[in-house]
Design a protein around this nucleic acid. Structure first.
Length: 404
RNA sequence: GGCCCCAUGGUCAAGUGGUUAAGACAUCGCCCUUUCACGGCGGUAACAGGAGUUCGAAUCUCCUUGGGGUCACCA
């Protein structure tokens, strides 16, 4: 809309294509063809690999024009030379050559008067002053044909850059149609758009230096055609997760809060937990946003946790140690007014000394009693701060009672 | 099948005749540590195969193998 080379709707450009198609016929680089679908089908059945130029040799231009004048349907075919080689230089693949005898006289203008892509891409790109054509490798070997058209018109050929696809595995490309995740799907999965862009940019291209993390601005500045790869690359979500975690960590607090809130709300945490505290614990521990529910599973799944979690071989503690320590800990906690992490931590560190136990062991027991989870997004005192005094004491009591 | 293209670790990738063949993700180990994560240090792991050319090939040539693309009145 609003560009300088419109119209941009193919059907609105019909006259343009027709004008150039007929012009191409005048130069001999194309010709009118009246062959029926039946004849074409027979030709193919007979084993012919390409059209036999029947109408070029058997229908004179005058006759063709007369038949067209009567309203007989026709197509315009490209007249590929019977011999010779067509060559061009792709900016990433280098020289690409094809024998003309291997090329078919493709249809340029269909019987409904509309162009095929074979024709439209050349006409449009030239008329719209396109200097660089960047597209998928599936066009790599079709390009020779298109160049013949540029040449016939005496037009300057554009520069070509063909790109390999992103693959799901070595044999299949990544494709929404076969169920692979789209950009939007990754956003829904909890990826940051800049991480996706960054990762995709690294597929099939690499900067001259060793950078892996590049912002859009960095990419614009670092991009060069020489960095483009000739071979397809397989999509590796693992690496994208890693990049995402990098961007996640450097997100301003407020930004992260906006992103995490919907997840907290969905878990029904509103009013029950301090979102700011949750953010503080989670932001550095997440690779993608959608990990939030599993990281917070311990908030609800507590009552039936496996008591053997109290065992820790390295710290040389087990359930009986827990049974012994927990009552003392409970008593101590009741005396502590503030459950603010730093205060609590210092206090309990000293408490560990008093009761003659390694602080690491004390914290392990306390964290398990508090959360019932082997892995939590924070240490014992951080979890206590998150739960607050009342709930902390309650949970520890529950765990203690279960120890019998 | 014809034609075109591609080929370095599990993955992304540097490398353009002489390198101990980078780096990153993943993985493994150690350190740090109130668990985990982060971070730090280190390990395992690659030139598809075969002939040439050359004093010397991951780098050049050819063949083989493997993979992809293309052979529409689709784009």
């Amino acid at each position: 809309v609003g560009g300088s080379y419109g119209p941009y709707i193919q059907s609105e450009r019909k006259d343009i294509y027709n004008y150039y198609a007929h012009k191409l016929v005048e130069t001999g680089a194309a010709y009118y063809c009246f062959c029926s679908k039946e004849r074409l089908a027979k030709l193919q059945e007979s084993g012919a690999a390409k059209y036999d130029k029947y109408c070029l040799h058997n229908v004179s231009l005058e006759e063709a024009k007369a038949r067209i004048a009567t309203g007989e349907p026709f197509v315009v075919r490209q007249n590929i030379p019977e011999s010779g080689v067509s060559t061009y230089t792709d900016l990433v693949f280098g020289e690409i050559s094809v024998d003309c005898k291997d090329l078919d006289d493709n249809i340029l203008l269909k019987s409904d008067g509309m162009p095929t892509y074979n024709f439209a891409n050349v006409i449009d790109d030239h008329l719209m002053n396109i200097t660089h054509v960047i597209r998928g490798v599936e066009y790599l070997s079709s390009t020779n044909k298109y160049n013949l058209i540029y040449d016939a018109f005496g037009w300057q050929r554009p520069q070509y850059i063909h790109l390999q696809p992103i693959m799901k595995d070595s044999a299949h490309k990544l494709s929404k149609r076969t169920g692979d995740a789209s950009f939007e799907d990754f956003i829904k999965k909890g990826y940051l758009s800049q991480a996706i862009v960054n990762y995709i940019a690294l597929l099939g291209w690499s900067p001259k230096d060793n950078r892996e993390k590049l912002s859009m601005q960095d990419l614009v500045e670092a991009f060069s055609i020489e960095g483009l790869s000739k071979s397809p690359s397989i999509f590796d979500e693992n690496k994208m997760r890693w990049l995402n975690s990098l961007y996640m960590k450097e997100l301003p607090k407020e930004e992260f809060a906006k992103l995490s809130k919907p997840y907290y709300d969905a878990l029904g945490l509103a009013g029950k937990y301090d979102y700011e505290l949750l953010d503080k614990l989670l932001q550095s521990r997440l690779e993608i946003l959608s990990e939030i529910p599993e990281k917070l599973k311990f908030l609800d799944e507590f009552d039936n946790f496996d008591l053997s979690l109290f065992e820790n071989k390295k710290l040389k503690i087990d359930q009986s140690t827990a049974k012994e320590v927990l009552p003392k800990l409970l008593k101590r906690l009741e005396e502590i007014p503030s459950f603010e992490n730093a205060v609590l931590f210092e206090n309990l560190k000293q408490f560990a000394q008093e009761i003659n136990i390694k602080s690491a062991a004390l914290f392990w027991i306390m964290r398990i009693a508090l959360t019932g989870a082997e892995v939590t997004p924070g240490g014992a005192t951080e979890m206590a701060e998150l739960f607050g005094k009342e709930r902390s004491l309650e949970r520890i009591k529950t765990a203690y009672n279960r120890l019998g």
